[in-house]
Write a protein that binds this DNA or RNA. Structure first.
Length: 506
DNA sequence: AGTGCAGTTGACTTT
DNA sequence: TAAAGTCAACTGCAC
C-alpha cells in the first residue's frame, strides 16, 4: 500500500506525490486532522474553513479518480500505525513542507517512526523551495527549470474498502469563532477561476492598482491562499502566466503594453514567493528569533496588551491603519503594501516585539504561508539587518493610497462627520472633540514622535561594533543574488559585491 | 529685457 | 514595499 499524505498540497492535478505513488500500486489518499496543529497560536478558524473547502473538493476529485479522500483524526503517527495494522504499507508519500516549528518537529517524528518501521518516506519538492540548499547561487535558474517541467495529470486509483471519515467543523477542533464574511473560497474550482480571471481580465491594472487597498482587491491575483494550501500548484500558475505572456508577445501594439508589464511584474513575484519560503526552510529559527541578534532585547519581551489589542482590532485612532486592520479581519486579505505598513506600525510606532503581532497577522491571513510570513515580519520589523529600514507614515500612506478616502470611510464609519481634508488626521479637525474620545479613539500614540524614536534606536543598533560583519554573513546566506545587500555607508558597491561573490547589480 | 526672489520640482543622500 | 533632508535647477512674478 502506498500512503499519500496530503498536507499543503490539496489537489490531484500536478501532484507528483500522488502520481508517483499511483505508479507503484494501490494508493490510500490520506488527510490527517491534527488537533494539536490547530491549537498552535498561528492557526485560526479561517485557515480551517479554507482547508475544509479544499478537502471537500479534493475528496470529490479523488473520488473521480477512483478512491475518495480518507480523513482521519489524531496524531499522524497514531493514524499511520492504525493503517499499518490493516495494510502492509510500502511507502509514505508527501510533499516537503516548510511549515512552522510544530510541523517541523512533527515531521522529524514521522521520519523517525518511518525509519523504525522500515517504511520509506518520499518527500517531493514543493514549489521552488530546495531542501538542503547550500547557497543561493543559481537559485532563480533552478526555479525556472523546475516550473517548466511538465504538469502531471491526476492518476486513476483503485477503490479501497475504507470509511472515508468526516471533515470536522472548526468548533470540533476547539478553534475560536472566527467570522470572516469576506473570506475567499477554497478548492480548485475557485482557484482556477481566480487564475483565469486574473490572466484574462482583472490583471491589466495590476502594476498600478496593487498598492491600493481598494483596487488591489480586484487587480491582484488573489491566488495566495490557493498556493498556500495547494489547491493550485505553483507550476500550473507559472506555466499559465508564461503562456499568457507568449500570447501577449504575439499581439503587437500599444494597448497590450499594460498587460505585458503586468504579467512581467507578476511572474517576478512568483519567484519571490519561493524566495521567501526558502529563508525559513534554510533557517527555521526565524519564526522565533531575530535574524540579526543585535536587535535582541531592544523591545520589551512581553507585549503591551493595550497597544497590541488596539492595533489588532483597528482601534489605534490612526484611521488608515485601523481601516486596513478592520478590512483584514473581515476578509482575510490585505494587499502587500498595507501588510507591510501594518507590521511596521506594530514594530516601530507601537514598539511591540514582532512575535505577538506576527502571530495575530498569521491568524488573520487566510493565505498564511509560514515561510513568507515570518520572513516578511522580520523584514518589516527591521530585524534582518540586511534590509533598508522602511518606517511607514500611516497618515501619508492614507493620503497616497486612499486619496478619495473611500476605503478609510468604508471601514471607519465613525468618522462620517469628519471632513475629507482631515480624514487621515481627524485630531486636526475643528469638530474633533465631537467624534474623538466618543465614537472613535484619539490616537493612542503621536505617530511622528514614535517613528522618530524608533528610527533613532534602530540606527543606533546598526552602528554598534560587529553589526556589519554579521549582516554580511546573513546576506551571503539569505540575500537575493540580484538585489545585493542594502548599502548604508559610502563604501564602494563594486568592491563589496566582489567580496561577497555576487554578480553586479542590474 | 534682465534681475532678484520666493516657491516648486526632482534627483540624490541620509537616517 | 519609506521618509526626510539637501541641493541645484527651474518657474512665475514683481519691478
Amino acid at each position: 500500500m502506498q500512503v499519500v499524505w496530503f498536507k499543503r498540497d490539496l489537489r490531484v492535478q500536478d501532484n507528483r506525490a500522488l502520481a508517483a505513488a499511483a505508479e507503484r500500486g494501490s494508493v490510500l489518499p490520506l488527510y490527517v486532522v491534527e488537533p494539536e496543529l490547530w491549537r498552535q497560536p498561528d492557526m485560526s478558524g479561517r485557515h480551517w474553513a479554507f482547508v475544509a473547502d479544499c478537502l471537500a473538493d479534493l475528496s470529490r476529485a479523488l473520488a473521480a479518480c477512483g478512491q475518495p479522500l480518507i480523513v482521519r483524526h489524531g496524531p499522524v503517527i497514531d493514524v499511520l500505525a492504525e493503517i499499518r495494522a490493516r495494510y502492509p504499507v510500502a511507502a509514505l508519500w508527501s510533499h516537503e513542507e516548510t511549515g512552522n516549528g510544530w510541523t517541523y518537529a512533527r515531521d522529524r517524528q514521522v521520519a523517525a517512526w518511518c525509519r523504525a518501521q522500515g517504511i520509506a518516506w518520499h518527500q517531493l519538492r514543493n514549489h521552488g523551495v530546495q531542501r538542503g540548499l547550500r547557497d543561493r547561487d543559481g537559485w532563480a535558474r533552478a526555479w525556472d527549470r523546475f516550473m517548466a517541467e511538465p504538469v502531471v495529470a491526476a492518476p486513476a486509483l483503485r477503490p479501497l474498502p475504507l470509511d472515508p471519515g468526516r471533515v470536522p467543523l472548526a468548533a470540533d477542533l476547539g478553534l475560536a469563532p472566527d467570522p470572516c464574511e469576506g473570506r475567499q473560497e477554497g478548492g480548485r474550482p475557485a482557484g482556477l477561476e481566480r487564475l483565469d480571471s486574473f490572466l484574462r481580465a482583472r490583471g491589466e491594472s495590476y502594476r498600478t492598482a496593487m498598492s491600493s487597498p481598494l483596487e488591489g482587491r480586484v487587480a491582484c491575483s488573489r491566488l495566495s491562499p490557493h498556493l498556500a494550501w495547494g489547491s493550485l500548484s505553483m507550476r500550473e500558475v507559472a506555466q499559465a502566466t508564461w503562456a499568457r505572456q507568449r500570447e501577449l508577445q504575439r499581439q503587437s501594439g500599444g494597448p497590450q503594453a499594460r498587460w505585458r508589464g503586468a504579467m512581467r511584474s507578476f511572474s517576478g513575484r512568483l519567484h519571490w514567493h519561493c524566495h521567501f519560503i526558502q529563508k525559513l526552510e534554510d533557517e527555521p529559527r526565524i519564526e522565533f528569533r531575530n535574524l540579526h541578534p543585535a536587535y535582541d532585547g531592544i523591545r520589551p519581551a512581553a507585549p503591551d496588551r493595550d497597544r497590541l489589542r488596539a492595533w489588532a482590532l483597528g482601534e489605534t485612532g490612526l484611521p488608515f491603519l485601523d481601516a486596513c486592520m478592520r478590512s483584514l479581519r473581515a476578509t482575510g486579505w490585505l494587499n502587500f503594501r498595507m501588510r507591510a505598513m501594518a507590521m511596521a506600525t506594530a514594530s516601530y510606532h507601537l514598539w511591540l516585539d514582532w512575535r505577538a503581532p506576527g502571530l495575530e497577522l498569521a491568524r488573520l491571513f487566510t493565505d498564511y504561508e509560514p515561510g513568507i510570513h515570518w520572513s516578511q515580519v522580520q523584514m518589516q520589523s527591521g530585524t534582518t539587518g540586511i534590509n533598508t529600514l522602511r518606517i511607514y507614515n500611516p497618515v501619508k500612506q492614507g493620503h497616497d493610497h486612499d486619496p478619495t478616502g473611500a476605503f478609510t470611510r468604508r471601514w471607519v464609519p465613525e468618522l462620517a462627520r469628519i471632513p475629507d481634508r482631515h480624514l487621515q488626521e481627524p485630531w486636526k479637525a475643528e469638530n474633533a472633540s465631537e467624534v474623538l474620545g466618543r465614537a472613535y479613539p484619539w490616537p493612542i500614540i503621536d505617530h511622528l514622535a514614535a517613528a522618530r524614536a524608533a528610527r533613532d534606536t534602530i540606527w543606533a543598533v546598526r552602528g554598534d561594533a560587529g553589526f556589519r560583519e554579521r549582516a554580511e554573513a546573513i546576506q551571503a546566506r539569505h540575500g537575493s543574488r540580484r538585489s545585493g545587500i542594502a548599502r548604508t555607508g559610502r563604501r564602494k558597491p563594486v568592491a563589496d559585491t566582489r567580496q561577497l561573490g555576487l554578480p553586479l547589480e542590474g
